[in-house]
Amino acid sequence: SSIKNTSDAQQIAIGVWNNYVDRTPQRTKLLDAFLLFLVTVGVLQFVYCVIAGNFPFNAFLAGFSATVGQFVLTASLRIQTNPENKSDFEGLSHERAFADYVFGSLILHFFCVNFIN
C-alpha cells in the first residue's frame, strides 16, 4: 500500500489537522462543529435503535432522517459558502445560500414533525 509506516500516516494527519485549523474561516468551523454534532446525534439514535428495537419505526425514521437531512443541508451550505467553490456557484451569494438553507430546513422539519406523529 501507499502508506509506508504509521509515523508517516500520523505525520500526514497532523499536517492536515494543522492545515484545517489554520486555513478554515471561523464561520466554516462553526458549521463543522454543527455537522459533528449532527453525526453524533445520528449515531446515538442509530445505536439506540439497534439496542432497543425499532418499534415506532416512523419515529425512528423521522428522527434519524432529520439528522441526516440537516447534515446534508448544512454540508450543502458549507460547500456553497466555501470560497474554493466560487467557480461552481456563480451568482449565488452567501446570503442567498443561507436563505436557501433556511427554506430547506423548514421543509425538512415540517415533514419530520408530520411524520413522527
Binding site: 437531512g69 425538512l108 419530520c112
Partner: peptide
Amino acid sequence: FSPRLYVSYTTWYALGTLASMQ
C-alpha cells in the same frame, strides 16, 4: 461530479424521501 451535483442530489433525496413517506 461537482459540488452542485452534491447539493442538488442530497437535498432532493433527503427532502423527497421524507415527502414521499407522508
